[in-house]
Nucleic acid binder design. Structure first.
Length: 1034
RNA sequence: GGGCGAUUAGCUCAGUUGGUUAGAGCGCUACGUUGACAUCGUAGAGGUCACAGAUUCGAAUUCUGUAUCGCCCA
């Protein structure tokens, strides 16, 4: 027999085991079925999953379970991502914290070994989290982006791109993380605003001509970079530039007023005063630049040119800008334009190199201080302003990013990007919600080459061997010799000239050899020619970009690939549309000639109660396991599905759960970063994720959860109990076909509602409307199935004549509801399914044996013929009458157990419907209906309620219960409301415009409504009068 | 600076092509527990739909602008 309570912890683990043993989530190639494939966005092995992942994976599971039930061969490919830089950073940081060692102390092999063991630990944790959530991945296929199969795909792709000359090496300005000593991509850099200074310097002019200034003033927020300056720029036409700004301001000024206009006028004044006071000087400087004047760079004592370039803004500062092409992205662009030397002043660790020996070895902050001091002593320091400065920080190490000139491998993006843009423009890949198309297309449209090398030890090592030569002929001969070593399918060779201006030295020539196979026998031969393998590894996204095909076996032409590729839907969050989705599309097209998926669904981001993204490092990350422990996996999933609207963010307030008293304590910005928290409810102290010392850890640790899952937990409970009711009443069940036309109204209502809900849920999932699907199922199950159908079934089940038919219908109803709910709440539905199978194995419209697992059962089909709008409308009348009785009872404080005499005045057609249902008013509203029809009368001591929309008036006999005060209060309140409505309607109808311009049916409707209201008001007024008379008699 | 999103009840959110009295869950108030469920039931209170303007007979809904918050990009 079904237990009293659904013990989710026990049930879920048993069910998981049964599914696992039966291989329910394993997908096989089955040519008789359509494939449906989802690849999981592989979670980083950096850390455990939080609710953001919980949402992501719940939605995927809803889709895959639905498709599986719909008869597809549904494959959900699981796995994890090695997340190169992130994981290495975490392990390195721990190494530093716990053992005070750097990666260089322990060496490449030892570090990589430690990262592998970290990976093993977190991969297991992550897969465990997914399993407990009920994710029906095909676990037998679990992959890892660094495993041999994925590595083979990486190698094949890299070789192919290299062969197509889409991979090249360049010295480029990269975002250098001086802590991790690697380049990071733009996307791994976040900008923060900090308080800083704006330093003004004077650079002496070498041999100024008469009338020319002796110094040029520049300003910078990063003084130490001046050691690498290679020019100072002035605008080529400062007069025109200022005039242009002036014109623009004037134009703008015409269209605005108030505060904004004042701002503009201030700006205009500033420009005008510049035109008066500075323009002359700027013109002189421009002419000096054109005349080839040079400046003496202080401290370095190096002559540098004065050049003209539009990057110098005559409206800002002194109008001159120093150029440090090797350490500033904008200056770098100017440097390329102006063919300036690029002087690197940094070592890889962020200390200064020997370019200016006096500063060698200093860290950047120290060098900055020293440079400022030295310039001051030299009398070249001007004003120092306070100013907010934008500082780039590495996402990974949280240290400052330095722009740094380094050798990097790049993928040429022009054609690849175009292909990925075309795929979306042509709708071959559809993105939902569609507003995300723009970001995708804009980003790809920039066609920026992709820097793929990372100076890390954890990742796919770049399969290139290289050597650099000063002489072209020498390089050529080594390149030729390399080519002789194997065939074009084994190796690819390029020779690349690296021009002088980039390096700041003479040109050189590099030979690159890319080997196709891992552990190729060619390796020693290549090395014998003096070529050395690149130390760097590939950007993590390079391997993730291959995920949809590498997991299916590509580059091998496997049967899996043939059958399951392209995949169907990719479900992810918006922050990686460009980083990942775009790259998968272009790699899929390059490697297989086919897009990797047809649909991309972007779900919202979960924020905490303060509107901040969840993350472990903020302390507001919620572990799905904590939620599962407290509320159960079904509640977690249902709760998540219900917040998956198509907005971009959703808020989920977060609480600590006190381990002593289980009270939930709202998380605040304050208490979420401390090690221990005193519980305001019980006074005991608990610890948080920040607990470190023994003393802190001695307090029991609090789970972090969200009370938003409480309603979902209640819903699971409701479903369980409704199911229990059904099961407890199936004694003597006999399977019988359900003859729909012969069914009473309530049964046909249920079938009609089931048909509609089935249709809407099916479509909703198809269209990624998960929140709506959740709401529909919740409303149907709770407010219709439980509150009405089950209540009505109670008297019918105790009536021997109706019992059997009711059992058949209710079993069918529950069966369908379980199927519809299964993708969202797999455990509780699977559990009920087993119990139902024990009592009513054969069930349905045409009874059939139920499958062993609900997970593998058929999705309900939409019975259009069951949808009956008349029945639904009639039943709605019944519900409204029930509501009217309840409302009267409540206002009269009639005790729930008392059955009150009642009558219903209604039209003949309503009477025809309600007559057979009269008994249910007793069950649902404690009303004993003694009379129904057009002539049904009020009682001597009467409480009436009119439902104008359906022309029904209900009356309750208050003889035994009359509470005149309460009744008067109720009626008078009603009277006020109605009067207000009447006024509104009268005004509306008195408006000539409304009557003449609004559609006739709307006007007609308003008139009818007004008439009803007036009628009601007079009825109520009569009732009030009668009641008052009665009161005065007593 | 550009793009995207949000702003509706104390909280978290729905709100279909503009049309009677703007909804739900939680929270709150009152009443209720031996018969599926107190993780429950019934009833109720609670909203100038951020602000300003425009379109319209009629705007939470369409348009323009403003403010606040968030995210992304430069």
């Amino acid at each position: 027999m079904i237990p009293n309570r659904f013990e989710h912890a026990q049930a879920a683990s048993e069910i998981n085991q049964r599914w696992d043993e039966a291989g329910c989530s394993h997908a096989e190639i089955d040519k008789s079925k359509q494939p449906y494939t989802i690849v999981i966005p592989p979670p980083n092995v950096t850390g455990a999953l939080h609710l953001g992942h919980g949402l992501n994976n719940t939605l995927q599971d809803i889709m895959i379970r639905t498709k599986r039930m719909q008869g597809y061969s549904a494959l959900w490919m699981p796995g994890t991502d090695h997340a190169g830089i992130a994981t290495q950073a975490v392990v390195e940081r721990r190494l530093k914290e716990q053992e005070n060692l750097s990666r260089h102390d322990i060496g490449r092999e030892a570090l990589v070994e430690r990262i592998w063991s970290w990976k093993d630990q977190y991969e297991a944790r992550i897969l465990g989290q997914l399993k407990r959530m009920g994710c029906s991945c095909d676990w037998r296929r679990t992959r890892f982006t660094l495993d041999p199969q994925c590595a083979a795909a990486v190698r094949a792709t890299f070789f192919d791109l290299f062969q197509k000359h889409l991979i090249y090496r360049g010295k480029r300005l990269v975002n250098w993380d001086t802590f991790l000593q690697t380049a990071v991509s733009n996307d791994e850099v976040e900008n923060v605003t900090k308080k800083g200074h704006f330093y003004h310097f004077r650079y002496p002019v070498i041999e100024p001509q008469p009338g020319e200034p002796e110094f040029v003033e520049i300003a910078t927020t990063r003084p130490e970079t001046m050691l690498g300056d290679t020019a100072v720029a002035v605008h080529p036409d400062p007069e025109a530039a200022l005039r242009k700004i002036e014109t623009e301001l004037l134009e703008k000024l015409e269209s605005v007023t108030g505060k904004e206009a004042d701002d503009l006028r201030d700006q205009l004044d500033a420009i005008n005063s510049r035109q008066r006071e500075m323009l002359g000087n700027l013109k002189v400087l421009r002419n000096m630049a054109l005349d080839g004047r040079q400046l003496m760079l202080p401290l370095a004592e190096r002559p540098i040119p004065l050049v003209t370039d539009e990057w110098a803004k005559p409206e800002l500062g002194s109008g001159c800008v120093k150029l440090t092409p090797a350490h500033d992205p904008n200056d770098y662009e100017v440097g390329i334009r102006q063919s300036l030397p690029m002087i690197n002043i940094l070592n890889a660790d962020g200390t200064l190199n020997s370019v200016v020996p006096a500063y060698e070895g200093l860290t950047i902050p120290k060098a900055r201080k020293q440079v400022v001091n030295d310039l001051d002593e030299a009398g070249l320091l001007g004003e120092i302003e306070d100013r907010d400065i934008e500082m780039p920080l590495s996402d990974r190490s949280k240290t400052a990013i330095e722009p740094y000139l380094a050798d990097q491998w790049f993928v040429k993006m022009a054609d690849l990007s175009q292909s990925a843009m075309d795929a979306v423009s042509s709708d071959e890949v559809q993105i939902f919600p569609p507003r995300y198309r723009k970001g995708y297309l804009d980003w790809l449209g920039e066609k920026r080459d992709w820097p793929v090398s990372r100076q890390l030890w954890w990742g796919h090592r770049i399969p290139i061997w290289s050597a650099r030569f000063d002489s072209q002929t020498e390089a050529q001969s080594v390149a030729d010799a390399s080519r002789q070593l194997g065939t074009e399918s084994q190796l690819a060779v390029t020779l690349q000239e690296e021009p002088a201006e980039i390096q700041g030295g003479p040109s050189s020539y590099s030979v690159f050899v890319c080997l196709r196979d891992e552990d190729s026998p060619l390796e020693p031969k290549v090395e014998a020619l003096g070529l050395v393998r690149d130390d760097d590894v590939l950007d993590t996204w390079f391997s993730s970009a291959l995920w949809p095909s590498s997991t299916l076996g590509w580059p091998q032409q496997t049967e899996d690939l043939e059958y399951f590729y392209p995949t169907s839907t990719l479900c992810t969050s918006r922050d990686i549309i460009t980083l990942w989705v775009a790259r998968m599309v272009l790699m899929g097209l390059n490697n297989l000639g086919q897009v990797p998926f047809s649909h991309v669904y972007i779900h919202p981001t979960i924020l905490d109660g303060n509107g901040e993204r969840m993350s472990k490092s903020k302390g507001n990350g919620v572990d799905p396991i904590d939620v599962i422990d407290k509320f159960g996996p079904d509640a977690l999933r249902f709760g998540l599905a219900r917040i998956a609207t198509d907005t971009q963010d959703v808020r989920l307030p977060v609480q600590y759960e006190c381990p002593h008293c289980e009270k939930l304590i709202e998380q605040t910005k304050k208490n979420r970063t401390v090690a221990t928290v005193p519980c305001p409810a019980c006074g005991e102290t608990f610890s948080t994720q920040w607990a470190e010392s023994e003393a802190e850890k001695a307090f029991p640790k609090s789970a972090v959860v969200s009370e938003k899952f409480e309603d979902s937990r209640n819903f699971v409970n409701k479903l369980w109990n409704a199911s229990r009711f059904v099961l407890m009443n199936l004694e003597g069940y006999q399977a019988q076909p359900i003859d729909v036309p012969s069914l009473p109204v309530e049964d046909r209502w249920l079938l009609s509602r089931l048909a509609t809900v089935t249709k809407e849920v099916t479509e909703g999932i198809e269209q990624f409307k998960f929140a709506e699907v959740g709401r529909m199922l919740y409303d149907f199950a709770w407010n219709e199935f439980c509150s009405f159908y089950v209540e009505i079934a109670k008297p019918r089940l105790s009536d021997p004549e109706q019992r059997q038919q009711t059992q058949n219908v209710i079993a069918y109803g529950l069966d369908t509801l379980l199927r519809l709910l299964h993708p969202i709440m797999p455990f509780v539905t699977e559990s009920v399914w087993s119990y139902l199978g024990e009592l009513a194995d054969q069930r349905g419209l045409q009874p059939q044996a139920a499958s062993e697992f609900l997970m593998l059962a058929d999705w309900p089909s939409y019975h259009a013929e069951h949808y009956d709008p008349t029945i639904e409308r009639q039943f709605a009348e019944f519900q409204q009458v029930v509501g009217a009785f309840r409302s009267i009872r409540a206002s009269q404080n009639i005790p729930p157990k008392e059955i009150v005499p009642a009558t219903i005045r209604c039209t003949q057609s309503s009477q025809a419907l309600l007559q057979p249902m009269l008994a249910y008013f007793k069950a649902l509203a404690g009303a004993d209906v003694q009379e129904i029809g057009e002539q049904a009368a009020a009682f001597e001591t009467d409480a009436p309620l009119t439902i104008p929309a359906i022309d029904i008036e209900v009356h309750v006999d208050l003889e035994k219960f009359i509470d005149v005060e309460a009744e008067l209060k109720r009626l008078e309140k009603l009277q006020t409301t109605i009067s207000r409505q009447i006024t509104g309607k009268e005004n509306k109808l008195a408006n000539e415009n409304f009557v003449s311009r609004a559609p006739a049916d709307v006007v007609q409707g308003e008139r009818a409504a007004l008439e009803d209201l007036v009628k009601r008001r007079s009825t109520i007024e009569i009732d009030i009068k009668r009641l008052k008379e009665k009161a005065s008699l007593n």
